[in-house]
Simulated scan of single mutants.
Amino acid sequence: MKLLAEQFARADVSLRELQTRADRAGGTRLPRTTCADMLAGRRFPKKAVMVAFLRGCRVPDHQLPAWERAWERVRVSQMPAGSKEDRSVESSNGTPLAAQVLTAPGNTGKTRGPGRRWRRAALLTAVAVLTVAVALSVIIAQRMAPRRSASEGVPDHIVDPAHIVSDDGRAFPRGGSSRFTVTVNPVNTGVRLIRRLDVGVGLQDATITVNGTPAARWRPLLEDSIYKWRNQIVTIPPNLTAGRHSLTIVNTCVSSSGFNEFLYTVEHKVNGVWSIADRIDIGRHHTASEAAHDYRVVGEDWAETQTFAYPPQKEHWSVY
């Protein structure tokens, strides 16, 4: 249950939202009371409920088989010795798994008093459950860790806590758009627009206009289900920014995967030096920043807070 609680914490989502996501998926339902009991350790979940819960927490599908195998081990360890279901599940040596758990060295098969036998069974079952939990931690860690580079002395899946960021943002589907106005120095010789996005949603594509003129495009990036934060950089043509105090930016989504945005940083080049000209923070918790930049969104279909990590190497944080 602790590992499920950790996934819930990483997802940074409410029980109500988990229930909604499960309802939208059309599979196993996730009542809030069921999830609450499961996270508190009051109820051992059915496998289908656990899988629906993990999918609601956005655990990648390729990790789910490891969770299911661990669930099966825990379920077997909880069965009473000698049950029919117990005998039907065997290990590679042909011996029922529950029998292995409940049989210790030195057990000669002699009849023991029922109290002593069940106390021993309970103790060994608890040990088995703990062992499975540890094994599950190892499995999930191995599944989630990216490959280690042969040239690196430290595994690159170790993330500095400073690389983990919580931020709220908004998203909209194909045909939707966002609009905002930023300030720049009119003597600029170039402007860059930098967007923080969640690349857990891959292949986002959008056009950009500046003051009503087509200017650039947010090119699609491949999905990364491990390190989801990126800062994508787009350069605006100098002829659209020179001599202007302000720029009105419109992003229009043209991809089926939708488009998300959390933070925009605007840099301008003045006297040959790049510096920050303006910044707009997107999201329900940053309405003051949105209002100051006349932010508008059309067709919004998502507005939440996410907690993700940037890649371990800082040179991979920003992409063009």
Rank of each mutant, 00 (worst) to 15 (best):
W274S: 13
D278G: 11
E290G: 15
M144G: 08
G212Y: 06
K84W: 10
T131R: 15
F262Q: 03
R174C: 11
W274R: 06
W317A: 15
G175R: 03
S137L: 05
A135D: 15
S151Q: 10
R58G: 07
F53M: 14
G202T: 02
N271A: 11
L197T: 13
D23G: 07
E300P: 11
E72C: 05
V134W: 07
S88T: 12
V129I: 15
W67C: 03
A150E: 07
G109Q: 03
N260E: 02
Y264N: 13
E315K: 11
F172T: 15
E68N: 05
H157P: 01
T235K: 07
W67S: 14
C253S: 15
V127E: 09
P173H: 00
H316S: 13
L136D: 12
E315F: 09
G56M: 06
R116M: 02
T305K: 08
V298W: 10
G109K: 05
A70V: 08
T207C: 01
V89G: 03
V51C: 01
G258L: 11
H286M: 03
R87P: 03
T183N: 13
S14W: 01
V127N: 08
G243Q: 05
T213Q: 14
R219M: 04
L221I: 09
S88K: 13
D281H: 07
K2G: 04
I233R: 15
P186T: 06
V134G: 01
F172E: 05
V138T: 09
S177L: 08
A52L: 07
R170P: 01
